[in-house]
Design a protein around this nucleic acid. Structure first.
Lengths: 232, 232
DNA sequence: ACCTGAACACCGTTCAAGT
DNA sequence: ACCTGAACACCGTTCAAGT
């Protein structure tokens, strides 16, 4: 009703924050996936123009790095807050769950670990996993190898789980996880036993439907290799 | 000099092939990286228009899948041609080398394995690794877990190696691998020992400079876990 | 200091028109 | 059947102009 000072383009009342931008980006990534994070969509959600974001953030790459960092730090500090049992399961499941909540995270993490091995996220994850390796009484000469093996397995397996889950959800509420898994094994069962004897055999024995248990079994399997080490 | 029939736009003499397109795409990916594969750049290299490609290929996604398939099948069949020693090292190194030659391969593979678990590449890789797991006398109940663990480690570690190598190359011929690795450990050595005791300890003992040996050590470590398994 | 929004160069994809 | 090339809708990024 007050009719004065209205024609000029409204400027935002409170200044934009880097934090706000990162959180909006995470929301967009969770909702619309990796391709959904757009400077236009982001600026619309923040009620501003595309150019405004560049005042606080260098570009899309930095935004992705910041979003990844934000989520991973939260996930790992949550784990650290638990009892000091020092189990690999805790940190493994912490990352597993974070990746399940944010399916865009796994590709981002592998890319950032590859392209920036000394970066913040890389260091945090390596440290978190490595401490459990240390607690496992692994000989010092195997520290790097053991931590790498665990890290790659965790990111790979968790990423696959998250992608599967996202795919099932996108198929609509009529499809559930088990039905989808069965459809995958069904395809494998049509494979020729001459060409693909192993895949056929695995499909015939049926895939485990409990993904968390499956995931942890892999962790235990690798851990068994770490502790089985003698001096040789 | 012959001045007749010259004004109409020249059509290509021999028809375009799907195979030609895929090979050109691989060349472009190898040369210019993932972002270098463009329908415009591709059509220029093939001396045609962007639209022509769509007659043979559904879109960029299918092209990427086909290129990945092409490279992986070649790498795996090469390994199969060797002596029937049945060593995991052979297939692991086959994939390691293929990924080193084609750095775009690792992200592509993890994406395709995640989003299409019953797809052609996924099945081929799973089968190739799985056969070695079988040859290792792993109990059937661990087949899937063991093969998954090995697969994720191979792709993750090989991808990181390839990315590092590509980064070193892009830094120019004055930088070599060892100097780069040292610069990474140098950064880690500046980490606070309170916050990052493990990463510091690993940096202080120095990273191994032989990546293939490092990679194979990881394979052996996981394999040790597979065979250490008892009935429990 | 911080924001606006038009503009630029570049994508993947489509499609009427040609041969 | 296969190709051409303009056109469309969409990107990330820049930047003069504003407050």
């Amino acid at each position: 009703m007050t009719s004065r000072t209205r024609k000029k383009p409204e400027r935002r009342p409170s200044p934009l924050t880097r934090e706000q931008i990162i959180e909006a980006a995470i929301g967009l990534l969770d909702t619309a996936g990796e391709s959904g994070l757009t400077f236009r969509a982001l600026s619309e959600r923040l009620a501003t123009g595309p150019g405004a974001i560049y005042w606080h953030v260098a570009g899309k790459g930095e935004l992705l790095v910041a979003a990844t960092d934000h989520v991973v730090v939260a996930a790992l500090s949550e784990v650290a807050g638990a009892e000091p049992t020092g189990r690999i399961h805790d940190v493994a499941l912490g990352l597993f769950d974070a990746i399940e909540r944010h399916p865009w995270l796994a590709p981002q993490l592998t890319a950032q670990i590859s392209h920036n091995p000394a970066g913040s996220v890389t260091t945090c994850i390596f440290e978190a996993i490595g401490r459990q390796v240390y607690a496992l009484d692994v000989p010092a000469s195997s520290w790097f190898t053991a931590t790498s093996a665990l890290m790659h397995y965790i990111l790979g397996a968790a990423g696959q789980n998250a992608a599967n889950l996202a795919l099932v959800r996108s198929l609509g509420p009529d499809t559930d996880r088990d039905a989808y898994m069965d459809s995958v094994t069904a395809i494998w069962k049509q494979l020729s036993p001459q060409e693909f004897p192993f895949a056929r055999a695995v499909a015939d024995q049926g895939l485990d439907h409990d993904d968390r248990a499956q995931f942890l079994a892999g962790i235990d399997l690798i851990a068994a290799g770490l502790t089985a080490r003698r001096t040789d």
